[in-house]
Design a protein around this nucleic acid. Structure first.
Length: 204
DNA sequence: AAGAGGATGAACT
DNA sequence: GTTCATCCTCTTG
Protein backbone atom coordinates (compact mmCIF):
# COMPACT_ATOMS: atom_id res chain seq x y z
CA UNK A 1 0.00 0.00 0.00
CA UNK A 2 1.24 3.41 -0.85
CA UNK A 3 -0.70 6.49 0.05
CA UNK A 4 -0.11 9.87 -1.58
CA UNK A 5 2.03 12.40 0.24
CA UNK A 6 0.82 15.93 0.80
CA UNK A 7 2.16 18.00 -2.10
CA UNK A 8 4.42 20.98 -1.62
CA UNK A 9 1.53 23.24 -2.63
CA UNK A 10 -0.33 22.13 0.52
CA UNK A 11 2.40 23.66 2.66
CA UNK A 12 3.06 26.79 0.63
CA UNK A 13 -0.33 28.37 1.30
CA UNK A 14 -0.19 31.54 3.35
CA UNK A 15 -3.00 30.75 5.81
CA UNK A 16 -1.30 28.73 8.52
CA UNK A 17 -4.49 28.62 10.59
CA UNK A 18 -6.29 26.92 7.71
CA UNK A 19 -3.37 24.54 7.23
CA UNK A 20 -3.46 23.65 10.92
CA UNK A 21 -7.07 22.54 10.53
CA UNK A 22 -6.34 20.78 7.24
CA UNK A 23 -3.59 18.74 8.91
CA UNK A 24 -6.12 17.13 11.23
CA UNK A 25 -6.80 13.62 9.88
CA UNK A 26 -3.53 13.50 7.92
CA UNK A 27 -0.98 10.80 8.72
CA UNK A 28 2.46 11.58 10.12
CA UNK A 29 4.90 8.78 9.31
CA UNK A 30 8.50 8.07 10.25
CA UNK A 31 10.74 5.28 9.08
CA UNK A 32 13.94 4.96 11.08
CA UNK A 33 16.07 1.80 11.08
CA UNK A 34 13.47 0.32 8.74
CA UNK A 35 10.80 0.63 11.42
CA UNK A 36 7.63 2.39 10.32
CA UNK A 37 5.62 4.31 12.88
CA UNK A 38 2.57 6.30 11.87
CA UNK A 39 -0.28 8.17 13.48
CA UNK A 40 -3.27 10.26 12.51
CA UNK A 41 -2.87 13.90 13.47
CA UNK A 42 -5.62 14.76 15.97
CA UNK A 43 -4.32 18.00 17.52
CA UNK A 44 -2.39 20.97 16.14
CA UNK A 45 -1.51 24.58 16.91
CA UNK A 46 -0.76 27.43 14.51
CA UNK A 47 2.15 29.85 15.00
CA UNK A 48 2.35 32.86 12.73
CA UNK A 49 5.10 35.44 12.61
CA UNK A 50 5.49 38.33 12.63
CA UNK A 51 2.32 39.38 14.47
CA UNK A 52 1.86 36.33 16.71
CA UNK A 53 3.78 37.08 19.92
CA UNK A 54 3.77 33.40 20.95
CA UNK A 55 5.80 32.46 17.90
CA UNK A 56 9.59 32.05 18.23
CA UNK A 57 9.96 34.24 15.15
CA UNK A 58 7.71 37.00 16.49
CA UNK A 59 8.42 40.36 14.88
CA UNK A 60 10.39 38.32 12.31
CA UNK A 61 13.12 37.79 14.84
CA UNK A 62 15.95 35.87 13.21
CA UNK A 63 18.29 33.79 15.36
CA UNK A 64 20.15 30.58 14.57
CA UNK A 65 17.21 28.63 15.95
CA UNK A 66 14.41 30.49 14.18
CA UNK A 67 16.17 30.46 10.82
CA UNK A 68 14.42 27.16 10.01
CA UNK A 69 11.06 28.88 10.34
CA UNK A 70 11.89 31.29 7.52
CA UNK A 71 12.66 28.50 5.05
CA UNK A 72 10.18 27.36 2.41
CA UNK A 73 7.22 25.32 3.67
CA UNK A 74 7.21 21.52 3.63
CA UNK A 75 10.01 20.89 6.13
CA UNK A 76 10.22 19.99 9.81
CA UNK A 77 11.09 22.41 12.59
CA UNK A 78 12.20 20.51 15.69
CA UNK A 79 13.49 22.23 18.79
CA UNK A 80 14.06 21.35 22.42
CA UNK A 81 11.72 22.67 25.07
CA UNK A 82 12.58 22.77 28.78
CA UNK A 83 15.83 21.03 28.00
CA UNK A 84 14.07 17.69 27.65
CA UNK A 85 11.31 17.60 25.07
CA UNK A 86 11.72 17.61 21.31
CA UNK A 87 8.79 19.43 19.71
CA UNK A 88 7.88 18.69 16.09
CA UNK A 89 6.47 21.42 13.86
CA UNK A 90 5.57 21.63 10.20
CA UNK A 91 6.92 24.72 8.45
CA UNK A 92 4.46 26.35 6.04
CA UNK A 93 4.26 29.31 3.65
CA UNK A 94 6.86 30.47 1.12
CA UNK A 95 10.41 31.34 2.10
CA UNK A 96 10.77 34.27 4.52
CA UNK A 97 7.30 33.81 6.00
CA UNK A 98 7.89 32.22 9.40
CA UNK A 99 4.77 30.13 9.86
CA UNK A 100 4.58 26.78 11.65
CA UNK A 101 2.13 24.16 12.83
CA UNK A 102 2.97 22.37 16.08
CA UNK A 103 1.77 18.77 16.01
CA UNK A 104 0.43 18.12 19.50
CA UNK A 105 -1.16 14.65 19.41
CA UNK A 106 -1.57 11.57 17.23
CA UNK A 107 -3.79 8.52 17.06
CA UNK A 108 -1.36 5.61 16.71
CA UNK A 109 -1.90 3.58 13.53
CA UNK A 110 1.25 1.66 12.63
CA UNK A 111 4.26 0.45 14.57
CA UNK A 112 2.40 0.67 17.87
CA UNK A 113 4.71 -1.90 19.47
CA UNK A 114 7.74 0.17 18.49
CA UNK A 115 6.11 3.30 19.89
CA UNK A 116 5.33 1.61 23.20
CA UNK A 117 8.90 0.42 23.48
CA UNK A 118 10.26 3.90 22.80
CA UNK A 119 7.90 5.37 25.40
CA UNK A 120 8.46 2.66 27.97
CA UNK A 121 4.77 1.80 28.09
CA UNK A 122 3.08 -1.59 28.21
CA UNK A 123 -0.31 -0.49 26.91
CA UNK A 124 -1.41 1.63 23.95
CA UNK A 125 -3.04 4.24 26.17
CA UNK A 126 -3.60 7.82 25.05
CA UNK A 127 -0.47 9.14 26.74
CA UNK A 128 1.50 7.14 24.19
CA UNK A 129 1.19 9.97 21.66
CA UNK A 130 -0.75 12.78 23.41
CA UNK A 131 1.34 15.91 23.86
CA UNK A 132 4.11 17.17 21.58
CA UNK A 133 6.99 15.80 23.63
CA UNK A 134 5.42 12.36 23.90
CA UNK A 135 4.63 11.92 20.23
CA UNK A 136 8.18 12.84 19.26
CA UNK A 137 9.52 10.07 21.46
CA UNK A 138 6.95 7.60 20.08
CA UNK A 139 7.88 8.38 16.47
CA UNK A 140 11.62 8.62 17.18
CA UNK A 141 11.78 12.29 16.22
CA UNK A 142 14.48 14.47 17.72
CA UNK A 143 16.39 17.66 17.16
CA UNK A 144 18.55 16.21 14.43
CA UNK A 145 15.51 16.06 12.17
CA UNK A 146 15.24 19.84 12.18
CA UNK A 147 15.01 21.02 8.58
CA UNK A 148 14.16 17.58 7.16
CA UNK A 149 11.91 17.56 4.10
CA UNK A 150 8.37 16.26 4.62
CA UNK A 151 7.38 16.05 0.98
CA UNK A 152 9.29 12.91 0.05
CA UNK A 153 9.99 9.63 1.81
CA UNK A 154 13.72 10.08 1.36
CA UNK A 155 14.32 11.81 4.69
CA UNK A 156 12.38 9.24 6.73
CA UNK A 157 9.68 11.68 7.88
CA UNK A 158 6.62 12.46 5.78
CA UNK A 159 2.89 13.20 5.86
CA UNK A 160 0.31 11.12 3.96
CA UNK A 161 -3.20 11.85 2.86
CA UNK A 162 -5.25 8.68 3.34
CA UNK A 163 -8.47 10.40 2.40
CA UNK A 164 -9.70 11.12 5.92
CA UNK A 165 -11.87 14.23 6.03
CA UNK A 166 -12.49 16.07 9.28
CA UNK A 167 -15.55 18.30 8.93
CA UNK A 168 -15.42 21.74 10.52
CA UNK A 169 -18.09 20.81 13.03
CA UNK A 170 -15.78 18.11 14.41
CA UNK A 171 -12.98 20.57 15.10
CA UNK A 172 -12.66 22.18 18.53
CA UNK A 173 -10.79 25.49 18.48
CA UNK A 174 -9.33 26.83 21.73
CA UNK A 175 -6.42 28.88 23.00
CA UNK A 176 -2.94 27.44 22.70
CA UNK A 177 -1.10 25.68 25.49
CA UNK A 178 1.74 27.26 27.43
CA UNK A 179 1.68 30.68 25.78
CA UNK A 180 0.14 32.70 28.62
CA UNK A 181 2.95 35.24 28.53
CA UNK A 182 2.29 36.19 24.89
CA UNK A 183 -0.09 39.04 25.68
CA UNK A 184 -3.03 39.43 23.32
CA UNK A 185 -1.70 36.62 21.15
CA UNK A 186 -2.39 34.20 24.00
CA UNK A 187 -6.10 34.71 23.34
CA UNK A 188 -6.01 33.54 19.72
CA UNK A 189 -8.06 30.33 19.24
CA UNK A 190 -5.36 28.56 17.28
CA UNK A 191 -5.32 25.18 18.96
CA UNK A 192 -7.34 22.60 17.04
CA UNK A 193 -8.51 19.17 18.14
CA UNK A 194 -10.69 16.49 16.59
CA UNK A 195 -13.78 16.51 18.78
CA UNK A 196 -14.48 12.81 19.04
CA UNK A 197 -10.88 11.65 19.38
CA UNK A 198 -9.68 10.12 22.63
CA UNK A 199 -6.08 10.62 21.52
CA UNK A 200 -5.78 14.38 22.03
CA UNK A 201 -4.15 16.03 25.03
CA UNK A 202 -6.61 17.22 27.71
CA UNK A 203 -8.83 20.27 27.41
CA UNK A 204 -7.67 23.27 29.40
C1' DA B 1 31.04 34.63 30.74
C1' DA B 2 26.98 34.28 33.15
C1' DG B 3 22.09 33.99 33.93
C1' DA B 4 17.20 33.62 32.93
C1' DG B 5 13.57 31.25 31.08
C1' DG B 6 11.01 28.08 28.06
C1' DA B 7 5.11 26.06 22.42
C1' DT B 8 6.28 19.91 28.59
C1' DG B 9 5.62 15.70 31.14
C1' DA B 10 5.96 12.84 35.12
C1' DA B 11 5.63 12.13 39.73
C1' DC B 12 4.29 13.69 43.51
C1' DT B 13 0.67 15.46 47.55
C1' DG C 1 -2.86 21.24 42.19
C1' DT C 2 2.34 21.51 42.69
C1' DT C 3 7.06 20.59 41.87
C1' DC C 4 10.90 19.83 39.19
C1' DA C 5 13.87 17.54 35.82
C1' DT C 6 17.34 19.39 32.52
C1' DC C 7 19.74 22.07 28.83
C1' DC C 8 19.63 24.91 24.93
C1' DT C 9 19.11 29.50 23.25
C1' DC C 10 19.27 34.15 23.69
C1' DT C 11 20.35 38.44 26.14
C1' DT C 12 23.28 41.16 28.69
C1' DG C 13 27.59 42.68 30.21
Amino acid sequence: MSFPLLPKSFFLRSDVVKISKDLLGKILVTQFNNQITAGKIVETEAYRAPDDQACHAKNNRRTPRTETMFLEGGIAYVYICYGIHHLFNVITAPENMAHAVLIRALEPLEGVEVMMERRGLKKAESKLTAGPGSLSVALGINKKHNGFSLISRKQQVWIEDRGIKVPDKNIIASTRVGVESAGESALLPWRFRIADSKWTSPAK
